[in-house]
Every structure is written in structure tokens, then in C-alpha cells.
Design a protein around this nucleic acid. Structure first.
Length: 423
RNA sequence: GGAGAAAUGGCAGAGUGGUCGAAUGCGGCAGUCUUGAAAACUGUUGAGGGUCACACCUCCGGGGGUUCGAAUCCCUCUUUCUCCGCCA
């Protein structure tokens, strides 16, 4: 969430920036400022009462020690009123703080100045495009047909075991997916990211830390018996490594990469757009996460974009990069680039990576700080991106690499797969 | 799952009702010394709120209670350790 102090000091700028998301934040922002003022004045009142109580208690202690029990008891009588007042004020303060918190949770991150205003994906800005769209024969198949033809992904079997959206990968399909995971992790490691394996279930505090809670509660699978959530992305456990941490400036830059399955309830529509691998309840993803000094975070974001570009170039997949408009931007993000691969057989773009800078929005919830050169603690910036999401990369490869002889394996993956064609 | 013990500052570890936000050691930072470094010595060093700055307030795993006063006593939850059971 945004810091109340920042809101106080940059009220107009924040309201203005939030109009890019097509929301009128003025009522929320003004409400928060008002509550904050109330909070501070209540706190001051309470503090004064507590200070007086502390003083009296000390005096009572001294009196008892020097044997003046009677005087002490007289002073005791004076404290009862203070106690009542402080109890009432304490409750009031608690209520106000919670109201303020609830309000702050509802204010999304302020978009970066480069983010275009807009309501929907129509308004996203295409900033880069690369790769050749292969010309396929007229009988080119979408990946779900190919999956069946070569018996590499079984959607029906997944339905039997779990339900829709839980595919079973078989034979060369499973091997290709594993090859991609290893290949991505290797590429990320080469680029300076430390590989890490994290839990796939997280507690409530972690959900709040990265912003999945309380806003997107229904999108996560919730294990109610133990109050744990299945992760929707590795971003959650990896970023939460730094919850409640004060790191030293020398620790920057922090770069992690991790492979995890991702679980999303996505109670969405059915139809061609969610067929096959396009949208799943369980899928695999290799994630990159960075924690950066505020002055370096956009440089880091660009670095992540370049890195993902390199992977797609290696795979020789046609792709484009979009800068998301305010309306399409995630709640917690200040700026996001989406990578989309062109699916030739489906004749549409598929999102395969999303790279975001959250600035201090997550760090504020996480209490992720660092000591600056003056020894003061400051919130760090967090970033993350997919490098990459497996199913749609798989779909892109199946569709774009199909030939009458079978599905060719991209050259860089052949050593990882141990075969060069699926037939 | 059963029995017992414990949770204190970056780490280790004192503190069992009052001048304790907390001894001491290590680590960190600054300085003296040194050509430089190490060692030694000196000083400094938790977080948050609040203030122009001070004052002041809160925090000793979380929540609640007793008391004029709680790190210290009580209740509860969580976590860790030891032993037993179960188990990939």
C-alpha cells in the first residue's frame, strides 16, 4: 500500500496519477488523510495520559521504597481516572488505525508517469516487436489438437483426476516442459539470479505482504484447516523472504529466481480463449524477483525486460512487448510490461510474461527497508517478472514449430530435451 | 499425535514486579595508532510513532488479563527444541 506520509505530502499528484487507472481516488485519499489526522491527535492525547501515568507510577514506587505507604496510596487513587481515559482512548485509537488501514488497502499503486491512461487492453502501448511469424500450412493446428495428435498433453485425464484446468503432460510433452524449466533457470542464473526453492503454500501474512490479500482473496486456493494459501505465483513466497527485514545498502542488488507450480482459481469464462493451455488452474512458472535501491529500480526493470527478450530471441518465438495502460495495470504495480508471443495457429497474442516494478507499494506492506547512507531506514523497491510462464510458451512452441513431419524442437532446447522432434 | 522445556536487540546471552529499551560478549560504524592493514584502545550502535528540533509514547514471539507499575505474574494462541510414536 501507499505510505500515508507520501499521500499526505503528494496528495494532488497521487490523485492525478490514479486517474490513469480510471478511478477517482479523491474520496479515498481525502478520507485517509482525515483519518490520519484523527489518528495523530488521538495518539497525542493518549501519549500525554500515559506519560502522566508513568510519572505517577514512578513516584509511587519511590514512596513505597522509602516507607511512605500512606502517601503512596493517596497517589494511587489519582491513577484510576487516568486508567479509564487511557483505556477509552486506546480503543478509539485502535479503531481509527484499523479504519485507516482498511482505507489504505483500497488505494491501488500510483502509476509511473510513463504509464498511459486507459480503460482496457485496447489502450496498452506496444513498445517493441520482434521475430518472424512463420507462415504455416492451411491445415495448421492449435496446440490442443497437436497435444492430442502426438499424445503429449492429456486434458481429459486431468479432468478425471482433478478437474478442468489441471492437464497431464505425457512423454515428450512432459520432457519438453521439464527442459524449458531447466533452460529458463539456467538462463536466469547466468544473468545473476540466485536459484531458490520455496514453499508452495503460504500463510496469511505472506498473502498480505505481496498484496494478494485482502483484495484478491477469491483467486487463491485456501486450505482452511490450516489457514494456508496455495501460491498463485512464486512472487509471493520469494518476495516475502524479505518481510520485516532491514537490509544493508551493500546487499543490493538482490536477485532471485525460482521455479514453482502456480495455482489460480480463476473462476472465469469458458470458450476458445481459455481452451487448452491458455488458462489453467495449475501451471508452472519460473519467476525472477529483485529488490532494489529506489534510485535503481527502473534501470532494473529495463534489465529484466532485456533479459526476457534474450530468452525469447533464443527460442525464436515472435513476440511483442506492451506497456500496460492504467486500466490494465495490476493493483499493486507502478509499471508493467507484458510480453506476448504470437500463436500462429490461434492467430492471437498470448501473454507469457509480465514484468513489474512495485516501487515501495509492496515494501511498505512487507516492511522491507534498507539503511541509506545517512543511517536512516527507507523502503526498498521490489520487482518481479515471469521468465517465463510455461504453458503458453509450450503452446507457442507447439503451434509455431509444427511441420508436416512433426513438431521441431527449438535448437537451444535440444540438449535439454534429448530429442529434436516430436512425432 | 503424546510428554517436557523454551521464545529477549544483527547474533550469542543476562535479567523473575519499580531509576530496564534492557547487563555483558561478538558483530557493525567512527576515531586513535600505522606507509597501509591487522591487533590494541576510545567512542558509538534496535524498531516504530510524534516534534521544526527536543520532550514524550509504544514495542522483550502474537493476543488478552492482574497491578499504581509487567521482559518478569496469570490465561490463550503460535513457533522452536528434547524424548516417544508415526512417516517420504
Amino acid at each position: 500500500m501507499l505510505q500515508i506520509q507520501t499521500i499526505r505530502e503528494n496528495k494532488e499528484e497521487i490523485i492525478k496519477a490514479l486517474t490513469k487507472r480510471n478511478v477517482d481516488a479523491a474520496p479515498l485519499v481525502n478520507g485517509a488523510i482525515e483519518l490520519d489526522e484523527k489518528r495523530r491527535s488521538t495518539q497525542t492525547k493518549l501519549d500525554n495520559i500515559l506519560a502522566e501515568g508513568n510519572k505517577l507510577s514512578k513516584e509511587i514506587g519511590m514512596l513505597f521504597k522509602s516507607g511512605k505507604a500512606q502517601e503512596a496510596n493517596e497517589l494511587k487513587a489519582k491513577t484510576s481516572g487516568l486508567k479509564e481515559d487511557s483505556k477509552l482512548l486506546g480503543e478509539e485509537l485502535h479503531t481509527i488505525s484499523e479504519e485507516l488501514q482498511t482505507l489504505l488497502y483500497q488505494i491501488p499503486n500510483a502509476p509511473h508517469e510513463l504509464v498511459p491512461a486507459g480503460n482496457s487492453e485496447e489502450d496498452n502501448e506496444e513498445i517493441f516487436k520482434e521475430g518472424e511469424v512463420p507462415s504455416l500450412k492451411s491445415n495448421a493446428l492449435p496446440h490442443w489438437e497437436l497435444a492430442k495428435k502426438y499424445d503429449i498433453i492429456d486434458f481429459e485425464l486431468g479432468v478425471k483426476i482433478s478437474g478442468a484446468g489441471f492437464p497431464v503432460y505425457k512423454g515428450k510433452g512432459a520432457r519438453l516442459q521439464r527442459a524449458l524449466i531447466t533452460y529458463f533457470l539456467d538462463k536466469n542464473t547466468e544473468a545473476g539470479y540466485t536459484e531458490i526453492q520455496v514453499p508452495h503454500l503460504v500463510n496469511e501474512a505472506s498473502g498480505y505482504g505481496t498484496g494478494q490479500l485482502p483484495d484478491k482473496e477469491g483467486q487463491m486456493y485456501h486450505v482452511t484447516d490450516d489457514n494456508l494459501y496455495l501460491i498463485p505465483t512464486a512472487e509471493v513466497p520469494v518476495t516475502n523472504i524479505f518481510r520485516d527485514e532491514i537490509i544493508s545498502e551493500a546487499d543490493f542488488p538482490i536477485r532471485y529466481t525460482g521455479y514453482t507450480p502456480c495455482f489460480r482459481r480463476e473462476a472465469g469464462s469458458y470458450g476458445a480463449h481459455v481452451r487448452g493451455l491458455n488458462r489453467l488452474h495449475q501451471f508452472d512458472k519460473v519467476e525472477i524477483v529483485r529488490v532494489e535501491h529506489p534510485s535503481k529500480s527502473y534501470e532494473a526493470l529495463d534489465g529484466m525486460v532485456e533479459h526476457v527478450k534474450g530468452i525469447l530471441r533464443d527460442l525464436k518465438l515472435p513476440y511483442r512487448i506492451l506497456r500496460l495502460c492504467g486500466g490494465d495495470l495490476g493493483f499493486t504495480s507502478a509499471m508493467t510490461y507484458d510480453f506476448e508471443v504470437f500463436s500462429t495457429a490461434q492467430n492471437r497474442w498470448l501473454e507469457i510474461s509480465s514484468v513489474s516494478n512495485f516501487e515501495t507499494y509492496q515494501a511498505n506492506r512487507l516492511k522491507l527497508r534498507f539503511k541509506d547512507e545517512n543511517g536512516k531506514s527507507q523502503l526498498a523497491h521490489t520487482l518481479n517478472g515471469s521468465a517465463l510462464a510455461l504453458p503458453r510458451v509450450l503452446a507457442g512452441i507447439l503451434e509455431n514449430y509444427q511441420t508436416p513431419e512433426g513438431i521441431k524442437i527449438p535448437e537451444v532446447l535440444v540438449p535439454y530435451c534429448g530429442f529434436d522432434i516430436i512425432d
